[in-house]
């Protein structure tokens, strides 16, 4: 946690400084008191302040990382998270081009294939069922205009 907190503190300070530089360009005062730049400026100053506190707190903690057993699966864990997050991003982008139904179908099929060990036709029919259920309940019953792709649905 110590290293993570040092990193967190530094990121917060850097982000806060960036936010200060941006907020300083907005009017700090207007004719009736604090202006549109007031709140963002102080919020970013508090962020820098909080980041510094976190950094100091972390640096004062004793180093004990050496004794902690390393998690051999760490990379694999992060990899899984990244894969799922990436797949979600791809699906969101895919929705615009392929259309909602196809993107969701592909996403669900890939996820089930990745997470569960079912036979291919079960995976596919589950994916088909889920994407259809979404399409029919949202687009047809609730009349939500879901994104349509090149195929028209």
């Amino acid at each position: 946690m110590r290293r993570a907190d040092i990193a967190g503190g530094l990121i917060t300070i850097l982000f806060g400084i960036f936010a200060i530089s941006q907020a300083a360009q907005i009017d700090y005062w207007w004719k009736f008191g604090p202006g549109p730049g007031f709140l963002p400026l102080w919020a970013s100053i508090v962020m820098v302040f909080g980041g510094c506190l976190l950094l100091i707190q972390a640096l004062r903690k004793p180093k004990q990382d050496k004794h902690r057993p390393k998690d051999p699966q760490q990379i694999k864990r992060i990899g899984n998270v990244a894969a799922v997050a990436g797949l979600t991003v791809l699906t969101a982008v895919g929705m615009v081009y392929l259309g909602f139904s196809i993107a969701i179908f592909l996403f669900v099929a890939l996820m089930i294939h990745m997470l569960g060990k079912y036979r291919w036709y079960i995976t596919l029919s589950m994916a088909l069922f889920i994407s259809l259920a979404f399409y029919i309940s949202f687009a047809k019953w609730l009349q939500v205009p879901l994104p349509e792709g090149i195929f028209g649905f």
Binding site: V84, A92, M95, F107, V108, M111, L115, S131, F134, P145
Partner: peptide
């Protein structure tokens, strides 16, 4: 099964946030 629940939740979060303002 989690293998089905997890993608289902993710699809719900995507659809749910889309339907708020019908934009990406």
């Amino acid at each position: 099964p989690q293998a089905i629940l997890m993608p289902l939740i993710l699809v719900l979060t995507v659809v749910g946030s889309y339907t708020l303002g019908n934009n990406m």
